[in-house]
Design a binder for these strands. Sequence first.
DNA 1: GTCTATATCTAGATAGAC
DNA 2: GTCTATCTAGATATAGAC
Lengths: 213, 213
Amino acid sequence: MTKRNTKELILSTSLALFNELGEPNVTTNHIADEADISPGNLYYHFRSKDDIVIHLFKRFLTGLQPLTEVPENSALEAEDLWFQLHLTFEIKGQFRFLYRNLSDLTARIPDLGRAMRGLLMRERQAAFQMISGLQLKGSLRISTQEKELLVDTLLLVITYWIPFASMFDLHRLEDGTTQVKAIARVLQLVTPFLREPERSQFTKLAFEYLEQT
Amino acid sequence: MTKRNTKELILSTSLALFNELGEPNVTTNHIADEADISPGNLYYHFRSKDDIVIHLFKRFLTGLQPLTEVPENSALEAEDLWFQLHLTFEIKGQFRFLYRNLSDLTARIPDLGRAMRGLLMRERQAAFQMISGLQLKGSLRISTQEKELLVDTLLLVITYWIPFASMFDLHRLEDGTTQVKAIARVLQLVTPFLREPERSQFTKLAFEYLEQT
DNA sequence: GTCTATATCTAGATAGAC
DNA sequence: GTCTATCTAGATATAGAC
């Protein structure tokens, strides 16, 4: 087995186990065992367990990158927004262990904490710009105070829909049901502030996809 | 030191440390050290670390109990609702370590998982009844579909406002700022579906308290 | 009830042969 | 690059004296 492949194998095995059992409940021996390699070999490729987590996190960020680099002031259409959310939620689902232990991971691994907080701030800004875009276009009416609160609520939902869902149905995260519900939730948060015809558009969109599941 | 007092001391010391550092990062030796007792003594009073967590959780439930036993079909006034939220959020803040490691704790300690899921279901039902009450009174208009989604969003927010807040300002949880923000957030979720005059009432209430901070 | 001392166990990590 | 064998540290938990 070449170096690249083993490293890859360790990462994918770790990701699967972390997602399934939760990162704190997966040992390096467990990973090695599942990947059919020796513990020593694992430590040849990674300096520590945290090192594996960090590599996975970087991969997560990379997967997210093309999505966070959205044209700044473009007022997104409802469909675009839905699609955007769908893509990011998909990736978050793939790396869901990060969100299930957010507090601990960010506290234990300072680099990860900084990076994650950075991501959250970028997401917050993206949400803010989306609202502002709709506002500028005249499709949305909201006070400054309400806007601040709404943006944070959006951030809360797009960050914690994973652990929330996993409290009830751990297995649904693999099919798309949970994602779609979370997306509908996000749209519903914005909808009430919209004017027609956007309001009906958003509402229709949210429940259209919800009903497919 | 009498038995009762030491047990109490262990519990309060554990709670403080868990809240501050996160439950997984606090060892039994650490607790004993902080409480100025020996590790052996700690294990005289509690069979395991999980046992301490369970005791604290029971205490949490007990503190919450008078609040979850709300008269069933009474349509709450805005002020009542605010007060109700304030009391429960206060207690959740006091036991915030439970919410910061929800996924892990519920997975590691099955009893706690069951009990926590039970609490969530009761809270969900309370939210549902609150919405239904307002609906029946004619103050609120919402479709069945939207109602389901809204109730789950409410549940998400009242469950994850603590870890969300602690991602940014770990220290604010001790003063009331974070709670008030979370309450305003909850009110804002319901507001858009309300008719006048309740709508203005709710909005005013949310921002009145928000501005005090 | 409380202490000191210690047992046990396990996870993370390393050494050195191949 | 990979293995086997092993070390180390630290956490939970117990034994037995006081």
